[in-house]
Design a protein around this nucleic acid. Structure first.
Lengths: 243, 243
DNA sequence: TCCCTTATCTTTACATCGTAAAGATGAGAT
DNA sequence: ATCTCATCTTTACGATGTAAAGATAAGGGA
C-alpha cells in the first residue's frame, strides 16, 4: 500500500524547489514496453492507459476499489489527471463500461459463430453472456449494476445499442421472422424481453450468490451452466392459460 | 442544506462548557407524537427511528444520498450514533434490506391471496414483484443492487429466505407438485430459476430504463405491466429442440 | 439512599474520496 | 522564436466511514 499523497497534500507548504517529475522515480515504470525510462510530463496516451489501469484495479480490488484516485495511482499520474480526460467519475465508469460492452459483444458474436448444431446455436449467446459475467464480474457490475453511467456518451450508447441489437436479432432468427427497427408486435417484444430478462436475471442472481441455494439442492455436481441450459430448454410444465 | 457539523468538527478546541444537549434545540423535534419536547440524551427507540429515517432519506434522495451521516441527521442525532446500533454502513443497509424484504413478501402474499381466477393467480406474484420495485425503487436497489449486504445477519437471512421459499412454493403450485426442502430435480430447479430470473431480470432492466427501447416500439400505450403479462403468458414460438 | 456498572449517545480525530481552481509544462502552430 | 493551448500537477475544500474517548443516564445491588 503505497500512498505518497497524504503527505504531499498536507505538509510541505515550505515551497520546496519544484522537483522535475523524474525525482519521483520510486514508482513502477509506466510504460513497460517503452524505451524511455524517464517519465515525461506529458504521458502521450494517458486516456487509454487510464482505462487499462481502471480495468486492472477493477479486477484486483473490485467495484468498491475502483476510484478515480486509485486509477490515477495505478497509472502513475497525479490524482487529478483522470478528471481532464473523463470529466468525473461517471465519465470514467461510462467509458469503461463501453469497453466492457465491446468485449461482451465480441464474446457473444464469437460464441455464436462457433456453433454448429441448432441447439448449440440457440444456447451459444446465453452461455457466452453468463460466461463473460463470471469471468469479468467487475466489468459486468459496471455495465449493469452501477447507477453512475451516462448513456448520452456516444461510445457507451453505441456499444450498449449494439448489444441490444444483437439480442433482438438473435431472437428474430429464433422466431424465424424479421424484426423491424421501428415497430414490434406485442409477441415480439415479449420474446425479446423474455430472453433478455431470463439471461440477465439469471446472471445477476448467480453473481450475487442467490442461486447457491438452488444449485446445492440439485443433483450432485450440477453446474450453473447446466442449470442455465435446463432453464432455457426444459419444457414448461404448467402451461399458463393463454388469453 | 443545514450542516452544523462541519464547524463543530473543526473549530472549538477551546473546551467550551459542555452544553446540556437541550441547548441545540434548533433541530426539528424528534418524536412528534411524544409529549416531551425536551430531547433526552437517550433516545429510547433510536434503532427503529434510524431505520425509518433511512427509509425516508432513501425515498427522498435515492441510493446515493443514503449515508450514515445523512440518516443520523434525519433522525436528529450525532453522526456516530448509528454505528452503535448497526456497527457500520453494511449493518444499516442490511437491516434496511430486511425491512424491505418483509414489505416485499407481504405485498406478494396479499396480491396472491386476492387473486380469483387461475390466470390472475398465476400473474399475481410477478405483478406484485414488479409493482413493489416500481413503487420503491430505492428499497429494491438496496435489496438487489447493493454489494454491501451481510446475509449472515439473522433478520436479513430470514427475510430473504422467506422470499425464496415463497417463490419456490408458488412454482411448485404451478407445477402441481410438492417441492422438497432438501432436494430438487433439474427440471424443478430450472423452473424456479426461470421464474425468478425472468421476473428479477425484467424488473432490473425496467428500473434501469433498458426496456424503454422495447416499450416505445410496441403498439401505442403498451405499459410495462402489459409487457410483463405478455412475457409470462405468450406462447414461445421457436421451440428449442429438447434434449 | 448511594454507588457502580453498563448501554447509549456525543465529540473529536483521521484517512480517503470527488471535485474545483490555479499553476506548471511542453507540443505544435504561426 | 514566440504564442497558444491541451495536458498534467498542486493545492484546497467539503463530505464520508470509522475508530476512540468522553459524557450521560438507566438500572441493579449494597
Amino acid at each position: 500500500m503505497t500512498k505518497p499523497e497524504t503527505k504531499s497534500e498536507t505538509a510541505r507548504s515550505s515551497r520546496a524547489p519544484r522537483r522535475t517529475r523524474s525525482a519521483a522515480a520510486s514508482r513502477p515504470p509506466r510504460r513497460p514496453g517503452s524505451a524511455k525510462t524517464e517519465t515525461p510530463y506529458h504521458h502521450g496516451a494517458l486516456r487509454e492507459a487510464l482505462l487499462q489501469a481502471a480495468e486492472r484495479v477493477l479486477e484486483r480490488d473490485g467495484l468498491a476499489g475502483l476510484t478515480l484516485r486509485a486509477v490515477a495511482r495505478e497509472a502513475g499520474v497525479s490524482h487529478a489527471a483522470p478528471t481532464h480526460h473523463f470529466g468525473d467519475l461517471t465519465g470514467l465508469l461510462s467509458e469503461l463500461a463501453a469497453v466492457g460492452f465491446r468485449q461482451f459483444n465480441a464474446a457473444m458474436a464469437a460464441s455464436s459463430d462457433a456453433a454448429s448444431t441448432p441447439l448449440e446455436h440457440a444456447l451459444a449467446r446465453p452461455k457466452a453472456y453468463v460466461a463473460y459475467a463470471q469471468a469479468h464480474p467487475g466489468m459486468y457490475g459496471i455495465m449493469f449494476r452501477t447507477e453512475r453511467l451516462d448513456y448520452t456518451r456516444p461510445s457507451l450508447h453505441e456499444a450498449a445499442e449494439a448489444s441490444f441489437a444483437g439480442l433482438a436479432n438473435a431472437v428474430g432468427m429464433m422466431r424465424q421472422e424479421q424484426i423491424s427497427e421501428d415497430a414490434l408486435t406485442l409477441n415480439q417484444g415479449a420474446a425479446i424481453a423474455r430472453a433478455w430478462s431470463m439471461v440477465h436475471g439469471f446472471t445477476t442472481l448467480l453473481l450475487d450468490g442467490r442461486l447457491k441455494d438452488i444449485l446445492e439442492r440439485l443433483p450432485e455436481g450440477t453446474t450453473a451452466e447446466r442449470l442455465l441450459e435446463a432453464m432455457l430448454t426444459a419444457p414448461i410444465t404448467a402451461k399458463l392459460p393463454s388469453r
